[in-house]
């Protein structure tokens, strides 16, 4: 391909038909806290693994809601379950169990 010095970014449109609603429902039963996230980003800001790799619980939850479960799994695959995010989450979300549940239900 000829390099024009710029490129067209891929479409960011989300096709919600691809979302696995059944899996998300299972997740919401395993850890109902997933519905409480307000995407404040405190978890990502304090994340231990985040210092090394792209790790973000906030974005993982958003990705799941948008049907991008592979992105979510990737964003959590570096997590060390250290629990810092649980301590800082203003909604009192049980983040460690949420992460474990996502990893189990959406295992690649």
């Amino acid at each position: 391909m000829i390099d024009f010095g710029f490129s067209v970014s891929p479409s960011s449109r989300i096709n919600l038909d691809n979302a696995d609603k059944e899996k998300f429902a299972r997740l919401a039963i395993a850890e109902p806290d997933v519905l409480k996230c307000m995407a404040c980003g405190s978890c990502t800001a304090s994340c231990t693994a985040g210092a090394f790799e792209d790790t973000s619980l906030r974005r993982a939850i958003l990705s799941l809601q948008n049907g991008l479960s592979d992105d979510a799994s990737k964003l959590l695959s570096h997590c060390m379950l250290c629990g810092k995010c649980t301590m800082v989450c203003p909604r009192g979300i049980n983040t460690r169990h949420l992460i474990l549940s996502i990893q189990k239900i959406y295992s690649l």
Partner: peptide
Amino acid sequence: QNNSINCNYSYLDT
């Protein structure tokens, strides 16, 4: 229950 969960810890060595 949990030991089989996949993780990507390659960054630890670096």
